[in-house]
Simulated scan of single mutants.
Amino acid sequence: MPTGIAVVCDTDDCLAVYLAVQTGDDGDERSADEVSRIARKAAEGAGWVISFGFQQPVMTCPGCADGRGPVLERGICQRCMGRTDASSRCVYCLYPGQPEQTDDD
């Protein structure tokens, strides 16, 4: 079974979450340190800012890092789970989401 990893923003009152990380389903067990490294690398690739405080990684979502956060409303953004506008763009991190598919066959 695939293992999912959630990364949350460390900014006060921010609801941003990054869920699109899977460590694989090959049955291999991974150490907590290895899973943490995978999560940090994936989040950083998605625009999250990683820094260190008190010898622990501090995760900051793209919206907070660019001054548009904190994420106060949940939505469908793949990068931070923030609310999207009518054009499917996140109002917090500006991630251009995919327009909804319609079945007009």
Score class of each variant (00 low, 15 high):
Cys14Lys: 10
Leu15Trp: 12
Leu15Phe: 14
Ala16Lys: 12
Tyr18Cys: 08
Tyr18Trp: 11
Tyr18Leu: 13
Tyr18Met: 10
Leu19Gly: 10
Leu19Ala: 13
Leu19Tyr: 04
Ala20Asn: 15
Val21Ala: 01
Val21His: 06
Val21Thr: 15
Gly24Tyr: 03
Asp25Phe: 09
Asp25Lys: 04
Asp26Thr: 12
Asp28Pro: 00
Glu29Leu: 10
Ser31Cys: 04
Asp33Cys: 01
Asp33Glu: 14
Arg37His: 11
Arg37Asp: 15
Ala39Arg: 04
Arg40Gly: 14
Arg40Ala: 15
Arg40Trp: 12
Ala42Lys: 14
Ala42His: 14
Ala42Phe: 10
Ala43Lys: 09
Ala43Val: 13
Glu44Phe: 05
Ala46Ile: 03
Gly47Lys: 07
Trp48Pro: 11
Trp48Val: 12
Val49Arg: 14
Ile50Lys: 11
Ser51Leu: 01
Ser51Asn: 02
Phe52Gly: 02
Gln55Ile: 08
Pro57Glu: 14
Val58Glu: 15
Met59Trp: 15
Thr60Gln: 12
Pro62Ala: 04
Pro62Tyr: 03
Gly63Trp: 08
Gly63Gln: 09
Ala65Leu: 07
Asp66Phe: 00
Gly69Leu: 05
Gly75Tyr: 02
Gly75Ile: 06
Gln78His: 09
Gln78Asn: 11
Arg79Val: 15
Arg79Glu: 08
Cys80Ile: 06
Met81Trp: 01
Gly82Glu: 01
Arg83Gly: 00
Thr84Glu: 07
Asp85Met: 03
Ala86Tyr: 01
Ser88His: 12
Arg89Asn: 05
Arg89Ile: 04
Cys90Asn: 05
Val91Cys: 01
Val91Ala: 01
